[in-house]
């Protein structure tokens, strides 16, 4: 079985962030980078599928040269091949991203193509779906369980009050939500091997976007001052009084 997983490099913002002066991006100076938790789970799912059914796994990203770091993390966990669709680092809209991924994978024979349900920064909810439709293969979005049996997939999606179960033929696209599995940490040996692995690179230039970003804005935050009720155990009577005042006891 051949499995593809697509990930996107994003800043790990922590508790505070500022925008760049032109309001086009988050100011990432002094920030580390990561991928969405949904995508971490997609990577884990790809590794598990290969462990169970045999075959080969590939991780792909569209982004700047620096995104090789995220590819190596996936390699360190056990993904076999890595592909970097290299851009100048400016943001691509989801339609252009999907188009580039389609062109890069059209000639390969992937049985399972995994995406996150939505990327962490753009939250467009569409790249995986667009890839599936362009390749004319079935897709289930937002899954939290996947099983492959006799060339068929059984996928589950959580809905209000329960689960929907889908059965579909392969090849297929799945967009994954965090919770489908618990991702492993890379081993030291994995990290060492990943360092030496070759990353396949394809340089791309940016096409016209249909969803054109103009500027980013920070939403209004919860304002007001925190009322410190006290320190340590001594604060307990004050907390209880507050809980009474709020009507929770």
């Amino acid at each position: 079985m051949n499995v593809l997983v697509c990930v996107k490099r994003v800043p790990d913002t922590g508790a505070r962030f500022e925008l760049t002066a032109d309001a086009q991006a988050i100011d990432t100076r002094n920030m580390e980078f990561t991928i969405s938790p949904h995508e971490e789970c997609a990577v884990e799912e790809a590794i598990r599928l290969i462990e169970k059914h045999g075959g080969s796994s590939t991780v792909l990203t569209l982004g700047p040269e620096a995104a090789a770091e995220q590819l190596r993390e996936a390699l360190a966990k056990g993904i076999e091949r890595a592909v970097l669709l290299e851009t100048d680092g400016s943001e691509w809209d989801p339609q252009a991203t999907a188009q580039a991924i389609v062109e890069a994978v059209r000639a390969s024979r992937f049985d399972v193509l995994l995406f996150g349900n939505e990327c962490a920064d753009g939250c467009n909810y569409q790249v995986g779906i667009r890839v599936a439709q362009a390749l004319d293969i079935p897709c289930v979005a937002g899954i939290k369980a996947l099983e492959i049996q006799d060339g068929k997939a059984i996928a589950k999606r959580e809905v209000l009050g329960g689960w929907e179960v889908y059965e579909l033929p392969l090849p297929a696209v799945f967009t994954v939500k965090e919770g489908i599995n618990s991702p492993r940490h890379p081993s030291l040996r994995g990290i060492m091997t990943a360092k030496k692995k070759e990353i396949e690179r394809i340089k791309l230039s940016k096409p016209q976007a249909q969803l054109v970003k103009q500027r980013l804005k920070k939403p209004a935050e919860r304002s007001g001052q925190v009322e410190i009720l006290g320190q340590g155990k001594e604060a307990v009577p004050v907390i209880v009084a507050k809980l009474k005042e709020l009507g929770v006891i």
Binding site: E227, I228, G232, A235, V236, P237
Partner: peptide, 25 residues
């Protein structure tokens, strides 16, 4: 950073504060 987004704050070890709070409630 949670203190700049909270309405009420208590500074200290939760392993001390929460059991004492349970007892009091």
């Amino acid at each position: 950073p949670i203190f700049s987004r909270a309405d009420y704050g208590v500074i200290g070890d939760l392993h001390e504060i929460v059991p004492a709070l349970i007892e009091e409630i």
